[in-house]
Design a protein around this nucleic acid. Structure first.
Lengths: 340, 340
DNA sequence: CTGAAAGCGCTTACAG
DNA sequence: CTGAAAGCGCTTACAG
C-alpha cells in the first residue's frame, strides 16, 4: 500500500541503488536517468522511509534539544529558533526536558533515552556533571552548549558577568548606592550557572565602586521565576528597607520584584528602581529596564554550530554575544530623601 | 563496537527472538530465561537500536507536536506538559512549528516532513484546511487537536465563547457600559479560531445586556502579542476615548493594552479597566485580572488522548475544561465621572 | 554511469 | 516456551 523505493525503481526501469542516488542528488547519475527517476518518484508520490534510511545510513536527521523546561520564555525562544534552523536544513527537532520545578534538583540526563535517535545535541542552561557528561559522550554525537559552558564542547552564550556589571553600572551612574540583588541559587549540579556569574558581576561591580555588597543585600531563589522574585523581594525589603535599587538576575524575577514593591505602596522607578537581565518579550509592556541578550540569535547560531559539527567541522567554537542596555521606566535616580 | 541484540543472545545462550521478547516484557518467556537475558543485557549495557526496532515493528515511539510558534507561552506550556506525559509513556516528542510571525498567513502543513516518523500527532491552535487535512490523513496516524476544533478529530480545549462572556459579565457587573475589545484577526486559514469565538462571546454578551458592541469598539490584530495589543489599544483609545474597559482576547494583548493606557497617563483599573483571557504566568506580577484556562491540564490530557488512540482507542473525544475568573488589580468599577 | 547483493539491527509470524 | 528465518526499506561498498 505504501510506495517503496522498489516501486520507483521498477517504474523508472533502473535499480534501487540508482533511485537512491538520484533522489538524494548524489553525483554519478546520468542526467536522463535522474530525470526518469524523479518523474517516477513524483508520479508515485514516493517518500523514502526515514527509519529504513536511518538504519541503513546510520544517520537519523534529527537533533536532540535538551533543556530544563521549555515552558519558560528563554528556553522556548531558543528552541523555536533552533528548530526552525534545523528544519530548514532537513533535520527534525526532538525535545527533551529535564524539569526542575521543585528547585535546584533535577532529573539526571540519561543518554539511553536518546541513543541512536539523534545526530547531534543542543544543551540549554544545563551543567552536566561527570556522570552526565559521560552519558553525553556515550551518545557519540556532537553537542553544543547554550548559556552554560562545558569544558570540551562548543558554546554559545553571553558574558553573564559583564551583563550583570552593565546593569549595576547603570544603577550606580544614576546615583544608587544601596543595590540589592535577586540571584539564582547555586546548586551542586550547576556550579557555573549564569546565575552564579551574574551574582559575581554584581559583587565585583559594587566592590569596584566601593559600595556595599554584603550577603544581606543578596536574596537567592531556587528557580528564577516571577513568583520567586516576588517572594525574594519581600524578604529583601523586610531586611533592608534602605535599598534604593534592585538588580534582578532575570527579567522574570524583576517582574516579581515590581509586584512586591508596588504592593508596599512604593513607586517603581521612583522609590525603588528595578533592572533585570534577559530582554524578555514582556519586559516592554512592563516598562522594565533591562540588559538584553540576543536570544533568537543564540538559538540560530547554536543550531548552525551543531549542523556544521554534523558535517564534520568538529572544531570547538565559543561564540559570545554582546548584551544591550534597554532603558525603560523601572529605573530612575534614587529618591532625594534617601540618598545617604 | 556498539552492542547488538545478537551479542545479548549469544551471551545468554538463546535466540535473538527470545531476547527481543524477554526485553520487551512480552508473555511466553520462561522465568529463568528472562532472568538470564536481562542479566546479559545489563552486563553488556545493551540498548536496542530504536531505528531498527522501528523499521521492523512499524512503530516509531515518537509523537509529532505541531503548533504555530513554540516561543509563545501558551504553546510552550502545552508542549512542555505533553512532552513530559509522552516521555513517561516511553515516547519522544518531535516538535514542528508553522510560524505565523508575519501575520495570519502561515506555512502550510506538509505531511511529507512527518511521514513514517510519528505514531500520533498533536495539533495546537491550528485550523487545517481541506488540503492540510488530507495531508494529515495521509500520515495514517491518530491526531488530536488542542484549542481548535477540527471535524472528525478528538479535541481538547475550553469554551472560548463562554470564557469571553465570563470576562464581559465581570466588567458589566461592575457597571461598565462601554467595553472595547481587542481581538485576534479572522484569517482564511483559521475561520473557527479561538479568537473568533472570543469575539463572538464579547458581542453576544454585550448584546444580551443591551450594550453597544459596534465595530468601532473592536480592534483586531494579526497575532495576539503584547506589542500588537499595545498598538491596537492606541488606535482604540483614539477612536473611542469614551470606553471605560477593555476586554482583550489574550493576556498578552491585555499587557500591551496596559502599557498603552499608562502611556496616556491614565490609571489602569481606575480610569480604564483591563481584563484578559488565558491565565498567563506573568499575569500575576502584572496584577492582571483574567479568565484563566487550565493550560497544563490541557497539555497532559491531549497527550493522554493521543496515547490512548495509539493503543487502539480511536473513539473521538471532546474534552472541554472550565475557565476561572481571577480577580486582580486591573479591573475596577468605571470612574464615576465617566458613567453615562 | 549502473546494478547485484550484502548489510543496517531489530520484530514477527510460523513451526515445533 | 523457544528458534530459524523472513522481512522491514533503505544505503553502500564493490564490480563492471
Amino acid at each position: 500500500m505504501t510506495v517503496r523505493i522498489e516501486d520507483v525503481a521498477r517504474l523508472s526501469g533502473v535499480s534501487t541503488a540508482t533511485v537512491s542516488r538520484a533522489l538524494r542528488g548524489l553525483p554519478g547519475v546520468g542526467g536522463r536517468t535522474r530525470e526518469l527517476v524523479l518523474q517516477a518518484a513524483k508520479a508515485l508520490g514516493y517518500t523514502p522511509s526515514p527509519t529504513a534510511s536511518s538504519l541503513a545510513s546510520g544517520r537519523t536527521h534529527s537533533i536532540g534539544l535538551i533543556q530544563p523546561d521549555m515552558s519558560r520564555w528563554f528556553f522556548s525562544t531558543i528552541l523555536e529558533c533552533a528548530e526552525q534552523t534545523f528544519r530548514k536544513a532537513g533535520y527534525d527537532a526532538l525535545v527533551y526536558s529535564l524539569p526542575d520545578y521543585l528547585g535546584p534538583k533535577r532529573q539526571r540526563f540519561k543518554a539511553r533515552d536518546l541513543v541512536g535517535k539523534v545526530d547531534a545535541v543542543l544543551v540549554l542552561s544545563l551543567f552536566f556533571d561527570k556522570q552526565e557528561e559521560a552519558e553525553l559522550r556515550s551518545l557519540g554525537v556532537p553537542a553544543v552548549f547554550v548559556s552554560v559552558r562545558q569544558k570540551g564542547y562548543s558554546h554559545v552564550g553571553i558574558d553573564d558577568g559583564q551583563a550583570a556589571a552593565q546593569a549595576c553600572r547603570h544603577l550606580i551612574t544614576l546615583g544608587h548606592k544601596t543595590i540589592g540583588h535577586l540571584s539564582g541559587q547555586t546548586n551542586d549540579l550547576c556550579p557555573f550557572a549564569p546565575s552564579q556569574r551574574r551574582r559575581d558581576g554584581w559583587k565585583q561591580t559594587l566592590t569596584r565602586f566601593n559600595l556595599e555588597c554584603s550577603d544581606s543585600l543578596d536574596e537567592a531563589v531556587t528557580i528564577m521565576t516571577a513568583s520567586n522574585g516576588y517572594l525574594a523581594t519581600k524578604r529583601l525589603l523586610d531586611r533592608r528597607p534602605d535599598i534604593t535599587a534592585i538588580m534582578a538576575s532575570s527579567d522574570e524575577m524583576a517582574m516579581g520584584a515590581i509586584q512586591a514593591i508596588r504592593e508596599r505602596g512604593l513607586a517603581v522607578g521612583r522609590d525603588i528602581s528595578v533592572i533585570g537581565i534577559d530582554g524578555h518579550d514582556l519586559g516592554r509592556p512592563f516598562g522594565l529596564t533591562t540588559v538584553a541578550q540576543p536570544v533568537r540569535k543564540q538559538g540560530v547560531t547554536a543550531a548552525e554550530v551543531a549542523l556544521k559539527a554534523i558535517e564534520g567541522d568538529l572544531a570547538l567554537k565559543t561564540i559570545i554575544f554582546p548584551t544591550t542596555l534597554i532603558e525603560r521606566a523601572t529605573v530612575g535616580p534614587p529618591p532625594a530623601g534617601r540618598i545617604r
